[in-house]
C-alpha cells in the first residue's frame, strides 16, 4: 500500500461526504428556526397579523405603533395591508373588520377608491 491512492477514491469520498452533509443539514437536521418575525409568516397568518394591527389601531389610535408593526411585515408592509384590504372587500368579509382595516390603510397613506365606502361613517340602523 505504498502507492498513492487514486484520485477516484478522493473524489468519491468528497462527493459522498458532501452529499451526506447536505442531506443532514437541509433535510434531517436543518437549522432550528425559532426567531421568526411577521415578515416570514405563512400568508394566512400574515393576513391575520394585519387584522390584529388594525384592531389594535382601532383601540388605541397609536399610528406610530401601527406603522412600526406594519414595518415588521417587511418592506412591502403598507402595500400588503392594502392588498389584504382589497381582498377582504372583494370577498365581502365582515364589514366592521374591513372598516378598521380601511381606516388603518388610509392613515398610513394607502388608498384605493374601493375603500371609500368603508371610510364613511356607518349608516344608522333604522
Amino acid at each position: 500500500m505504498n502507492r498513492l491512492p487514486t484520485p477516484i477514491f478522493i473524489l468519491l469520498g468528497l462527493a459522498l461526504g458532501a452529499g451526506l452533509g447536505l442531506a443532514v443539514g437541509w433535510v434531517f437536521w436543518p437549522t432550528e428556526f425559532t426567531d421568526a418575525n411577521p415578515a416570514v409568516l405563512d400568508d394566512g397568518y400574515r393576513r391575520d397579523y394585519v387584522q390584529l394591527i388594525a384592531d389594535s389601531y382601532a383601540l388605541d389610535s397609536n399610528l406610530a405603533a401601527a406603522q412600526q408593526r406594519i414595518g415588521d411585515l417587511g418592506e412591502d408592509g403598507p402595500q400588503y395591508v392594502l392588498a389584504v384590504l382589497i381582498d377582504m372587500i372583494l370577498r365581502q368579509e365582515d364589514e366592521t373588520a374591513i372598516r378598521r382595516l380601511a381606516r388603518l390603510a388610509n392613515d398610513i397613506g394607502q388608498y384605493t377608491p374601493a375603500m371609500a365606502p368603508y371610510l364613511a361613517a356607518p349608516e344608522a340602523a333604522p
Binding site: 477514491f9 468528497l14 452533509g21 447536505l22 443532514v24 437541509w26
Partner: peptide, 13 residues
C-alpha cells in the same frame, strides 16, 4: 475525503 466532504456539506447547509 468522506469526512472532509461531510464537513463541507454541513457548513454549506
Amino acid at each position: 475525503s468522506l469526512v472532509i466532504g461531510l464537513g463541507g456539506g454541513l457548513y454549506y447547509a
